[in-house]
Structure formats: C-alpha cells, structure tokens
Amino acid sequence: MLIDTENRELLSLPTAELLRLAPFAGDFFSSLGLELPAEEISTADYFASLDAELLEDLGLERQTLAERFTAFMELLENLKSGIDNAHIESITIRGGHDKSGRAEEFDLTVKPGEVICIVGPTGSGKSRFLADIEWMAQGDTPTGRTILINGAAPDPSQRFSIEHKLVAQLSQNMNFVMDLTVEEFITMHAESRMVDDIPSVTAAIIKLANDLAGEKFTPQTPVTALSGGQSRALMIADTSCLSTSPIVLIDEIENAGIDRKRAVHTLVDKRKIVLMATHDPILALMGDRRLVFKNGGISAIIETSNSERANLALFEEMDAKLGAVRNALRNGERISHTPLLA
C-alpha cells in the first residue's frame, strides 16, 4: 500500500507513469473538470501551468490542488484496501431503551451469513434501529444503544468513511435514476469500487441476477425498462458482489418476478448479514431470529423454533397454489379451470 509521502511523490511523476501505477488517477482530473495532462508532464508541473482564469471559472484554487490530489490518491488506496480488509466477524447491538425509557435488556450479536427478520408496525422504531447501526451508535443516539464491531468499539473515523459503511439498503421503492443499460450500470458501479477485472465481474453479476429473476433480461436492457422483480434481482446480485457493506437490509421482497428464497440465499452465500423487514411467513421462517419492534424499542427477540419451521412446507405449498393461480391469470385462463384449486 502506498503511504502518504509516496502519494506526494506521485505528484512529480510524468502522467504516463502515474496512470500506469494508478489507472484510476485520471478520474481526479475529470472529476474537477480539468483535462488530462500530457503524458510527459508531471502533475505538479501541470498544476503550475494551469491558466488562472480557468481555475477561477472552475472554482478551484491553485495552492489547494496538490493537497486535493494527495487526498484523492489516499482515497483510492483506502477504497482498495478497504475492500480487501473489510473483515467483520461480528456486529453486536447492545440494548438501550424505548421511547418511554423502558430498558431493552439484550446484547444481540450477529455474524456474516445470518438472517435476522425485523417485525413491527410502521413507526415502531425500525428506521431508528438502522440509523443506530449506520452511525455506529455509542450511547449517543435517542435510543442509547451501543454498536460493537468484532466485540469492540469501532474507530470513530469509520463513521463517515464510505469504504466502511455498515449497511447497504435494498428498499422497496427504489428507482434507477440513470438511463443506462444493465451492463453500463454495473460497470459504473464496479469502477467506483476499483474492481480489477470489471468485464468478468459485470458478467457474473448479470448472470446471477438472471438466475434470480423470473423473466430474463440481457446486458443491453436499459435499467429503466426492468420490471420490479428484475430490478430487485439485479440489485441483490450487485450488492452481494460489489458492496463492501457487511449488512444488507431488505424491506419485503415482493412475491413477483423473483425467486425470494434464492435471493436471500445469494446474500447468505456471500457472507452478508441479512436484515429483512418482512411479514411474509416464508421469508420470516428463513430467519434465524426475529426482532420485534414496539414503541421505539426492541420488545422481544424470538429464535425461530423447529416447530415454527415445520410450517414451512405447508406455507410453500399454499404459496405454490397461489402462484399457479397468478400464472393462470397472466396466461388469460379462467381461475375455476385451475386444477390446483380443487
């Protein structure tokens, strides 16, 4: 890993050499609206040669450019090493209190590969719970909860570093704002993650998403043309492969266009901690535990028992029947002709 002084030495390298050592360094110039320096010119000389009027127009100060460059190169290094070193073995949530001040008496430790369900009505404190995890609360939030990483209090600097973000959220009302094809979209994400072999990672994600989605799509499909289920599948595949966040929060996977069980298994296989806000019996029974939210606090933690799981076969059978009716409707059939209802 390059250390700070080496980042400063990068300033005096000719651009061709710089780009060979750090291919993403070119982004520094484009992100500030500057042109890429000529191959033989060093970054420091380039900064010195820039026209004062151009800098004024771009809202940049010459004396801060070297500092910005060094900070940018450090960011690149941190992102790369953050992805390599994001070893999270456990996250512990130490209970605080609910809105009335009643103590939550629990220490909840979750590990990669576990599925935790979140249940409770709107306004019962689910968002606050996630905010506590995201902020790595140290008794300094309204709930008084404390978050420990690998059993210890996290370094406060991690609170705001984008490479240490704890929670990736796959919310139900998410949209794609960008007008890109699936392939371009995933490539863009992979680039921001400094992935080495972008084409093969992109291809793997698209294949995985297609395995999860009911109806297939191609790398050339625009993301805005994807169905709800396909979008969900793509984001689950993308998050499982590209996100550095150890926790993935999903709010309710709708029962259409996506294999829900496989979707959850995909995240589990990639060693994510899956938090799932769901009242769907099949998904809820996939969870190892359920956190019950009430009045801003966690009022109970229910371990999924074997007798509860014994219902799973029955629920799946019911689900399959309903699914068949849905398909019949889609195919223009009459429901009464569906033999499964008999």
Partner: peptide, 9 residues
C-alpha cells in the same frame, strides 16, 4: 431512499 443502492454508492 428512492434510488438504488448501487447509485447511492
């Protein structure tokens, strides 16, 4: 809350 996780990142 209204854009995809990938776009957020």
């Amino acid at each position: 809350d209204i854009v995809s996780q990938a776009e957020r990142e």
